[in-house]
Design a protein around this nucleic acid. Structure first.
Lengths: 131, 131
DNA sequence: GAACTGCTTAACGTTAACGTCAAATGCCTG
DNA sequence: CAGGCATTTGACGTTAACGTTAAGCAGTTC
């Protein structure tokens, strides 16, 4: 069973980014595709990494944060020395805290927005009714 | 019952931002405090606005987005012409969509992070036990 | 009245995250 | 083999969101 592979522009299309963005992420050390000659070639793992990066971005993380975050996935498989694990654990717990705050913010904002939405609708002619 | 008022640095302290930031938001039209002489004076509504702005920021919105968002709170009170309401409704619905995507991202990420967290803990000496 | 504190405007600097060229290379096709 | 397309590296440009510095005014404190 051979692995599916992507060129840079194929990957860019499928993930909704530009090739420039992908190369930029590589410059930052977030991606390390294989090469065929000079050309970059991406496998499924590379694609999964990119998708993780984009999710991180949607959540407002910096690329630097995302870099550390990606490192966690690997470090987890290598429970070699506890001091490093301790460090990673601290990082994770800090991020969990940020995300929980964000969840709260999000819930509040959504509530207010939907309230405004129904307010709007109640003032409009009822062209919004599903037939 | 007199309203409580804040100087720019008091407000900055209470909200955890710099005075530069507050002035910057004013430049962008997000805040319009009263003046006493040349000095800015903030009332409770101003403070509430700032808090809303900061929440928007934590959610990764641009200041421009936040500006439109703040406008919704006022427009809602003025159901004058429906065309404007329609426009606002579209904006709100688009933002609700973004936020729901974000909620999904968040839930997934939190799940993965806490999984990694327990993995880490299971490999560490049990110095984490509550006494 | 000199120093200190807090405020003002104005202007320039900075960082992240790309966009936008430019010039060169490799491969395929007619 | 000329033309066209995808790719490469490299360099400079851009935008948002402030930071930082400068220069000056107002009040009050020793």
């Amino acid at each position: 069973m051979e692995q599916k592979l992507w060129s840079i522009s194929e990957l860019a299309d499928e993930c909704g980014v530009t090739t420039r963005t992908i190369r930029f992420y590589e410059d930052k050390g977030l991606l390390q595709p294989q090469r065929v000659g000079a050309n970059r070639v991406y496998n499924y793992q590379d694609k999964a990494r990119l998708i993780l990066i984009l999710r991180g971005k949607r959540l407002g993380f910096s690329l630097e944060d995302i870099g550390e975050f990606l490192a966690l996935y690997h470090a987890e498989c290598d429970p070699a020395h506890a001091s490093q694990l301790r460090y990673l654990l601290d990082k994770v717990q800090a991020k969990v805290k940020v995300l929980r705050q964000q969840q709260e913010d999000l819930a509040q904002t959504l509530q207010e927005l939907t309230r405004i939405e129904t307010e709007c609708l109640s003032h409009l002619p009822d062209s919004e009714m599903p037939t």
